[in-house]
């Protein structure tokens, strides 16, 4: 009754190939067409100050503590053998001492401690993604996201191969910060490319995000030339990308490539603040979600530049 089928085993291309992931989101409705499962891969070369998934920035695995769940019973302190944990108003983690052995996680009665990632084989990753395949009919499928998918490209490629072999629709959400050579390998395996263009100005891109946008724009052109299904998204971050000038520049570029290019403006989502609190990091964006009127004004800019295929969710 679960709608699952037995899948023929597909051998790993490299037996040692493993990936580090940080979340599987089931019932994903904003990561491509239809209903999807989205797997988030760790590690990202960009350093967007507003990053929604700070746990995806580092490729390594860290111990996380959620103060809201914690009952301050102290069992984790007693269980830790490396003296990495101290209890005050909350549990503090000395990351240089933590060996990620997992004893504190086991000891915690309320599940307030966890690792922010785990290592899986491509087969395991595909199994997780395909658990909900009964929901994928009628145009849904699986999506790889991050972090940045291309940081672990051999693993990602292998996961996508397995999903494709099952006849499942595939998508990736990526910055497209990767080499032409790598991108080439993904073209036959990905049905939908969802990519960000955050800044049009090269200098701003470098200064704010830490990397150049030349490769990103070139890859966008390659995808368009290859006839791939591409959706370009621009996150509207108050104090950063959400300026008339930036949005107009992006729109103008896209319209010059193809006026029918699919484009979507993503409203700022302040809910990720709680993740920063758990990491004991400062969240640098001091802003709120844009109002419907502000969003409409940005949408008008896209229209004025001649874009005809604006996705409004």
């Amino acid at each position: 009754m679960t709608g699952r089928s037995d899948r023929a085993a597909v051998p790993d291309c490299a037996p040692e190939c493993r990936g580090t992931i940080f979340e599987l989101k089931r019932f994903a409705v904003h990561d491509g067409p239809g209903l999807r499962s989205t797997l988030f891969l760790k590690g990202c070369p960009l350093r967007c100050p507003w990053c929604q998934n700070p746990e995806g920035l580092s490729a390594g695995i860290r111990l996380w503590h959620r103060p809201r769940s914690c009952v301050r019973c102290g069992r984790c302190i007693a269980a830790c053998r490396s003296g990495a944990l101290t209890l005050s108003d909350r549990v503090h983690i000395d990351r240089s001492a933590c060996t990620r052995c997992g004893r504190c996680i086991e000891a915690c009665p309320v599940g307030a401690l966890s690792l922010d990632g785990r290592v899986v084989s491509p087969g395991e990753a595909a199994d997780m993604l395909l658990e909900d395949r009964v929901f994928f009919q009628d145009g849904g499928g699986v999506t790889l996201s991050g972090g940045e998918v291309f940081v672990q490209w051999p693993f990602a490629l292998e996961v996508l191969k397995r999903c494709k072999a099952e006849g499942v629709d595939t998508a990736i959400e990526s910055s497209m910060y990767t080499s032409a050579d790598v991108l080439e390998r993904f073209l036959p395996l990905v049905d939908h490319f969802i990519m960000d263009i955050k800044y049009m100005d090269a200098e701003t891109h470098r200064r704010v995000l830490g990397v150049d946008n030349r490769q990103i724009l070139e890859n966008h052109a390659r995808l368009v030339a290859a006839g791939a299904d591409v959706l370009v998204r621009t996150p509207l971050i108050p104090g950063y990308t959400a300026t008339e000038e930036n949005v107009r520049a992006i729109a103008s570029y896209l319209a010059s490539v193809d006026p029918d290019a699919k484009v979507e403006l993503l409203n700022f989502n302040p809910m990720c603040r709680s993740k920063y609190a758990a990491l004991e990091w400062e969240y640098p964006v001091d802003g709120r979600a844009l109002t419907a009127e502000e969003m409409a004004a940005f949408h008008r800019i896209l229209e004025a530049e001649g874009l005809r295929n604006i996705i409004r969710e």
């Binding site: 009754m1 679960t2 709608g3 019932f27 409705v29 239809g34 209903l35 009964v134 929901f135 009919q137 009628d138 145009g139 849904g140 409004r312 969710e313």
Partner: peptide, 23 residues
């Protein structure tokens, strides 16, 4: 909020289809 867009309505209808397939 799920129902405020045509896309949301379509996705909800797909959710119902899966409910149906699941028996």
């Amino acid at each position: 909020s799920f129902f405020q867009t045509q896309s949301g309505i379509e996705k909800f209808a797909r959710f119902l289809r899966a409910f149906c397939r699941l028996g």
